[in-house]
Structures are given as structure tokens and as C-alpha cells.
Design a protein around this nucleic acid. Sequence first.
DNA 1: CTGAAAGCGCTTACAG
DNA 2: CTGAAAGCGCTTACAG
Lengths: 366, 366
Amino acid sequence: MAEDSLTTLSGTRTGPARPRRRATLHDVAALAGVSIKTVSRVVNREPGVRSDLVHRVTEAAERLDYRPNMAASSLRRAEGKTKTVGLMLEDVANPYSSSVHRAIGDAAAQRGVAVLATSLDEDPVREGEVARTMILRRVDGLVIVPTGSDQGYLRSEMEAGLAVVFVDRPPNFLDADTVLVTNRDGAREAAEHLLAQGHRRIAFLGDLATIATAQERWEGYVTAMRRDRVVVDERLVRRDLRDQEASERAITELLALPADVAPTALFTSQNLVTIGALHALRRHAAQHRVALVGFDDFELADLVEPGVTVVAQDPYAVGRAASELLFARLDGDHGPTQRIVVQTRLVVRGSGEIRPASPGSIPSRG
Amino acid sequence: MAEDSLTTLSGTRTGPARPRRRATLHDVAALAGVSIKTVSRVVNREPGVRSDLVHRVTEAAERLDYRPNMAASSLRRAEGKTKTVGLMLEDVANPYSSSVHRAIGDAAAQRGVAVLATSLDEDPVREGEVARTMILRRVDGLVIVPTGSDQGYLRSEMEAGLAVVFVDRPPNFLDADTVLVTNRDGAREAAEHLLAQGHRRIAFLGDLATIATAQERWEGYVTAMRRDRVVVDERLVRRDLRDQEASERAITELLALPADVAPTALFTSQNLVTIGALHALRRHAAQHRVALVGFDDFELADLVEPGVTVVAQDPYAVGRAASELLFARLDGDHGPTQRIVVQTRLVVRGSGEIRPASPGSIPSRG
DNA sequence: CTGAAAGCGCTTACAG
DNA sequence: CTGAAAGCGCTTACAG
């Protein structure tokens, strides 16, 4: 911790006291002069308790600060639901993950379900560990942005009643509900848009090739290029870019290529990569010369100069679809596995409509 | 749900089967031919079990897909900890909240503690409800960005051993650990910076006046103005701005004021308000004429034109400080209540260094 | 080193 | 309408 930026003040009063034992059904029953079963009835608002007893029990519970113990009650209860779901995201702090989280949190709150959220940071080992602890905690359901290459470990859990929904990427070696977006079509549309402006030297800047969505976006790009008979120049392809800095470096290198090789347009296939591109273009004063289309929308994309043309996805809608699938399963739906695909859409703002300057780039389309 | 943007496909295989009963200690014991106590010992890695029994039990547990039931074990266990903490944020999807979340999640993951995260949306009623359900779930600790005006309801819980840390805003009617930032000083610094550029008609655009931090930032602004003997013009003060749109409208109105009244500079006291300001200034082509300093940093603040000068806070550091306080309490620290204040800092990027155009605005400082 | 009994706080399934 | 007994899946506190 940066000590110099922190000030610590100690309060004058004494701190938290040594814990007091919590009151139980038994304590309340003793004070109210009834059996624990009667207290249980009152606490659970079961009908058919004499109103004077309801009154006495309520009063005793209040006096003793009684709080029912959910763990104990769900232990004996028939369904044994914990009314808890687990959320395994890439990073709770990134805008995509946190919008998905919000959508699921909204649906869960309506149903009195609590949400355990975690960040996996694209670490397959953590995926397994986190899933295991979530299962030990007896979550009723799991929403997962998978990062490992095999989700088969969840099969026996699903057979034991665990509801599982995958988001953003499909599971491997497992049949389960999944919510995806049109990665391939969206990426193709992005590349087609740049081709239509007359670009032929379109660089591809992608995330880890092991991520399914990164792979699909790559395929969409390749499809568009092939259709227009434009050869993909390997010198203009950079993958495995994990963060802004890596993206910035890669683009700086591309811009330094000889004029007949350097890209006239960039397709950045992910949020952070796009932002890295903005920094690199700005630093080389190339933002009005080199075209840019990014995958994923982001705050202020319309306020930079030029505005950033993107293939936008709607993470809240993705999260909402996931929560609908999840809660349907929790409500007893035993129907076949569903796959929901949420549409992306091209948002035109300026950066993607820059035309190539050199004469050699007349569109070969049509 | 926007049906037209969704495609639903049904899988060919059949869906999740009807749940199978989970294996218990008892089942494993029966299969291994030992007592449940021995299984318990093996599962908890207690020493002193004959290795051949360890082997038999491990095998049986594996065959039956045994998963210990945390709820049951913590029920009888002495400490009775659930290794779960609750996080009550403004909105899990906003960048400030989600950075705090991430910091606490990182600290919790290290300790095998799970995090229940929720959004309160500045609703005091929800604060009470969510706190209650978190308590029923027997969380060991609670990290709260409070929204209500009275947190006294937590006193008896704290006496019963609940660890509570407040973040961003102090609790009311309750003595508890708190992490704050230098709202007053940061806002004063922002206003002083604008005054130093020669501005005197500095508009204040603030969040809900009921939020403690909004009030402190207002006080910092007033302090700076008073020190320079600049009268605060009520026509230039807009509070209770909740979102980008409200901010945009308010600023549009300010820009339409007569030239001798209209502000030459804006102090926006919160993230979304600042972004609303950017939109409004841009729409009126005033971004190079009207100065702007915002409270809270945000992504791309350096990439818009001009770059946005802000008073930055470090939400990850705030979250980290909160988790340190929380886990110290959970580790048995009974010392006096602590208050940690994290420093803000002015980040100069251009928008705050625009000087007033009119001759009447020569600084009266010194 | 191993296990039978009691108990954690609650609900279920009965009996009165 | 009310309550005594058994049991949820596990750990504690003992005894052997």
C-alpha cells in the first residue's frame, strides 16, 4: 500500500467487542414460553398460530435480536436450495463483465437470490478451483465465462442438479445452455466496412488465439478478406494481444512499416486492444489517416476525434438472456439445452469511414 | 428482451436430467467400510489415519462424487465462520464500484473467502433489505458504500461479531471502520486550479446533495471560492444531478445564459456528470473555450480533445484498504475503530488550463 | 488409530 | 392449534 497517500486515524471509542452468542430458536422459545416449533412457525409466517402466541414470539425474537440461520434451515429443508448463484467472470472490474454481472444481479435480486462473483483472469486453473469452491458452497446455479479448454468436470454436478449457463464462449466436452454473440458475422461486417471504403491493407489485432471469441472474430475477418479476394498479409496480423500496452506496441510497429506494406486500416478485435490503438494512432498523429474499426463498444467512443466506429455488443442483454436460462432451469425446466445468440451491430462514428490515401487501394469489390 | 436481436437454438441432446441425490459422509463410509468419523478425518486431512483407510476412503469418495457440505460443517464447527463477505456497492457495473469490488475480491480470493456483491442504486430501503439478507446468510463481514442516513441497525450485528467496513462515505449513528478519500481537499484543489487560471464564474455541477461525498466536494468548492473572495453565483450552481443526461441538460442551460453570467469554467463533481459535460460542451463547440475540471478519473480522459483535467481517486487502493481493515477484524483485531483517508490528486491534461476569454476575469488572487 | 454418541439450528412428519 | 421426536450432514468430545 502506498503509505504516503494514506492517512490513518484511530477512533476514540473502543473497537468492536468480543462477539456475543447469537440467539437461537431455542432461546426465543424459552423467553416466549412456547416450543421451538411454534417459534419456527411464527418466523416462517406459517398460518394457524394463535395470535397471542404470534405476538409473544415476535416480541421475544425482537428482544433477543433473533436472526434465523439460513444454513441450518436449508440443511433440513426438502429442496435444499441455497438461493445463491455463482458468477465466474473474466474480471469483475472490466466493463463487459460488470454489465453481465449487473444484468444477472438484477434478475437475482428480484428472486431473493444472492450472487457470488469472481474474476478468473483467463486462468484455466482458477476456473477449476473456483468452480469447485462454488460447488462446495452449494450454489444452485453457475454462470461461467469459461477460460479452460474442458468443462467436462461439471457433468456430474449438473446431474446432481446444478444449473449451469455459459456466457460469451461455448463450453467444451459438455452440453449446457449457452449465450453467445455473433462474433464471426460482426467481425466480417467490420472488415467488409473497411473494404468498402477502399482499404486492402487491413491489419488484424486480436486477443489470445486460445479464446474462442478471438478465434471467431479472426475467422470473420478472413472470410471478408477472401470474399473480396484480398490476400491477408501476415505482416499485418498481430494476435495474442492481452492489454492496452501490447496493442499500442504492436500498432506502433505496424505504423513503422514501409509505406507500401503499412496498414491503411486497423481492425481491433477487442475493447482494450482498440483503446491501445487509439493511443498509438494519437501518438503518431495518424488518427485521421489510418482507419479503425473496433469490436466492442466503450464509453466515450463518440467523443474522441474522430469518433470510433465499432461493432457493438450489448453485454446487459447477454447477461439478461443468461439469467433467463439459469432461472428457468432453477424453476425446474428440464427441456433440451438452449443456445441463444445475441446480435452485434455496426455503429458508424467516423474512424471507420476514413478512406485510404494511396492510389493503389481502389476497391476490387464487385 | 429485444426478440429481434436474439436467435434461440435448441440443442439436439436432451436437457439436464432430474437431480440425483448427492453422496454424504454416510454413503462414503458405507462404501469404504469405515465410520463416518473416519471419512470426516480423511476429508479434512486430519493426521493419524492409517494409510490404507485413507486410500479406501479417498477411492470411495471419488467413486460417489462426494462433495462436503460446507453449510453442515460450519453449523457444528466452533467458529462457525462462513468464509463469505458481503459487498454492498452503488452499482456493480460502474467503474468506481467495480474497481473497489476487484480489490476486495483479490484479497478475499487469497484467503478462500467468497464475495457476495450487490447494487444498492442509492436506495436507502434496499440498503436495509440487502444488509438483512446478508446477515441471514451469516456473512462474516460486510463492506458497505452506505446510502441510507442511519446505519444504527448494524450495531447489534457488530456486537454479535459481524465485521463491518464503510467505504467512500462515513456511517451515521454507528462507530465503525471507514475508508474515505480527500473529497473536500480534492474539490478545493480543483476550484483553486480554475481560479488560478483567472476564472471567476466557475459553475458547480454536483451529485445528489444527500450523498456525503457530494456535500464535501461542494464545501471544498465553496472554500476555494471564499478564499479568493469570489462570490458563488447561485445561477451557476446545479446539484442533484444523477446521470449523464441530467448533467448535459444542466450545462446546456448554463451555456445559454447571458455572456456576463455564463460560466467560463465548470467543476463537475462526479464521473457521469463530467461525461455529460463533455457531451454538452462538444455539442455547443465550447470544449476549447470553457474550462473543465472533473472529480474522478475515467478511461480515455487523456484521449478526448482537449484532455480532461481531473481530481483522480484510486478506487483500487480504496478497496484494498477496506479489505485490510475487514480481514484484520476477521482475524480477531479488537482495537479501536480506524479511519483511513486515501489521497486524491490533480491530473492536468488540458481542459482545466483553458483561460477565460473575457477581460473582466483577471484573477483577484493575492 | 477408530468409532459411537451427542449436538449445531433448524424443518419434517407425526401425535395429541 | 401446539409440541415431542427424529433427522438434515457434519463436527465435537469422548471412550476404547
